[in-house]
């Protein structure tokens, strides 16, 4: 186990190193001069040159890589070109949005997926199973940003527009009148369609801003997870000790809850670990849909603004996050599965 762990760690370190070279290399070939971008159309050439010197952009390549990577490893992520503050500070600020968002989405998707998977597995082959898995199939196919747009329309814009419909009368007017308590509720709830008031505005306001993004982010995850839960459960249910338990006359649902669920959780957790990378991709796009000042939007913005040091450091952090989560998943898996440990 120790040898396995050591070699796994060495491999991880090598992956991180190569990844850092890739990230740095991409930054080098990114077209666009950050200094020119900051000073705009009317700036003179010497003002741009002065800023380049100030930003350290005229140093040789290896020197810049070395400065960056040694700083990075000691926790100094550099200083943002555009904001002029340490990147670490920006990351901390943005994590205060992205982390709760990701956790909410993760919790939400698990809360949806486990019962759905359990239900489907317990009704294996019956209508309930087919219906749930059909829904899950659709859920996997729904682009989260489209879902987000539709959610905003239904829950934020429509409640305010519905008054006009009521006034107009007709079929839509009648429908709007019937639904008016629902609209009134959402008018009162005032879910923001985007933007983030900041945690200083109070946790209620901040959480409200994260609800719709979390739902949009959670849906496809929940769909995938419920399918995994179901098939993991079915696989476990096919194993001998479950058959034995069933043969003893224990009811199927009890068997599922008492024996199968715990064992089926191992693959589910593994998938959750693998989903981490998807979750990051999801936050990038969802934070852009909702204009949330999170880590994903920071990177996206930084790319368009050529705030290279931010892109470099944050990408590296995310990549390291994925690598570490994968490592942890592997280790957990090895601990959980003795066969694998011995084989390794």
């Amino acid at each position: 186990m120790a040898v396995w762990l050591a070699s796994r760690l060495a491999m991880t370190a090598a992956t991180v190193l190569v990844a850092s070279l890739v990230v740095f290399g991409v930054m080098e070939v990114l077209p666009g001069d950050p200094a020119r971008l900051m000073l705009g159309m009317n700036a003179t050439q010497d003002a741009v040159a002065a800023l380049r010197t100030q930003m350290g952009l005229d140093l040789p390549l290896p020197v810049r890589y070395w400065t960056w990577i040694t700083g990075f490893l000691t926790g100094d992520l550099g200083r943002s070109y555009t904001y002029g503050v340490p990147v670490a500070e920006l990351v901390a600020e943005r994590l205060a949005v992205s982390l709760p968002l990701a956790l909410m989405a993760l919790a939400l998707s698990t809360l949806i997926a486990l019962p759905v998977g359990l239900f489907a597995a317990s009704r294996h082959g019956k209508t309930g199973d087919v219906a749930m898995m059909g829904l899950a199939q659709i859920g996997v196919a729904v682009p989260n940003f489209w879902f987000a747009i539709i959610l905003v329309w239904l829950l934020v814009l429509l409640p305010f527009q519905a008054q006009a419909w009521v006034a107009q009368g007709g079929l839509w007017g009648a429908l709007a009148t019937v639904l008016s308590p629902v609209f009134a509720f959402f008018q009162w709830l005032k879910l923001p369609a985007g933007g983030f008031p900041g945690w200083e505005a109070g946790s209620v306001a901040a959480l409200k801003a994260l609800i719709l993004p979390a739902i949009a982010l959670a849906l496809p995850q929940a769909a995938i997870l419920s399918r995994v839960t179901r098939s993991a459960l079915l696989e476990v249910l096919g194993e001998d000790y479950i058959r034995t338990a069933r043969a003893k006359g224990l009811p199927r649902n009890l068997v599922i809850r008492r024996h199968a669920l715990r064992n089926a959780l191992i693959p589910v957790i593994t998938i959750l670990g693998l989903q981490f990378s998807f979750l990051i991709a999801g936050t990038i796009i969802i934070e852009n849909v909702f204009y949330l000042p999170g880590l994903g939007r920071l990177v996206f913005q930084a790319i368009t603004q050529r705030d290279l040091i931010v892109v470099q450091s944050v990408t590296m952090l995310l990549v390291m996050g994925v690598i570490v989560v994968n490592l942890l998943t592997d280790v957990l898996y090895a601990i959980a599965d003795p066969r694998l440990r011995r084989a390794a």
Partner: peptide, 20 residues
């Protein structure tokens, strides 16, 4: 290991960088 490196990059983020 090469595969691991590619997998370590969140796909969308890398795609954004490639198109940038």
């Amino acid at each position: 290991r090469g595969n691991d490196v590619v997998f370590a990059f969140p796909a969308l983020l890398s795609a954004v960088m490639i198109t940038a």
